[in-house]
């Protein structure tokens, strides 16, 4: 006679151990290499744009950052709209999540997704759904770092 599936604490621990054996691990090594290659390639492309703005458009080393970032954001948003960026993301992982393009993708994807709920509650209200925490904790981290740096200067 069969006993049904047990649900006690011990049964849960045993089940988790058994399930672990069957769940394939994320291919971390391969993911790291892919992320390095794609992330590096995006940064290299950014550097290339930066150099063009300096060489041909009269920007300085300091001011060329703005148009470079604008172009990267534009391209990432375009690729998101064309449905390409999420496929790239699946392959590249953290590589395509590198700040500028990954952030643009997170914003654009949420904005596109929630267009059906209108411009105010949908696009406006939901746009920061994925990217919002990055802004919040980016700002908090910047504040803490600035505080520490100021305190160190005082000492």
């Amino acid at each position: 006679m069969a006993t049904m599936v047990k649900q006690g604490v011990k049964a849960k621990a045993e089940f988790k151990k058994m399930a672990r054996r069957h769940v394939p691990k994320r291919p971390v090594a391969a993911n790291v290499i892919k992320a390095f290659l794609v992330g590096g390639a995006i940064c290299l492309f950014g550097q290339f744009l930066n150099q063009i703005f300096i060489t041909y458009f009269g920007f300085t080393q300091k001011s060329a950052g703005n148009p470079t970032v604008a172009v990267l954001i534009f391209l990432a948003t375009l690729l998101t709209g064309l449905g390409v960026y999420d496929r790239l993301g699946q392959w590249a992982g953290a590589g395509s999540a590198v700040p500028v393009t990954g952030f643009a993708n997170a914003m654009a994807a949420a904005a596109i997704e929630h267009r059906s709920e209108g411009f105010v509650l949908g696009v406006g209200g939901q746009m920061f759904k994925v990217a919002g925490p990055v802004i919040v904790y980016g700002t908090v981290a910047a504040f803490v770092v600035a505080l520490i740096s100021q305190l160190l200067k005082l000492l």
Partner: peptide, 17 residues
């Protein structure tokens, strides 16, 4: 996808499971 996970076009990586 949009209810349980992320927007469809978001480039997050999904695990093999």
């Amino acid at each position: 996808e949009r209810q349980f996970r992320y927007p469809t076009e978001y480039g997050g990586q999904k695990p093999p499971s």
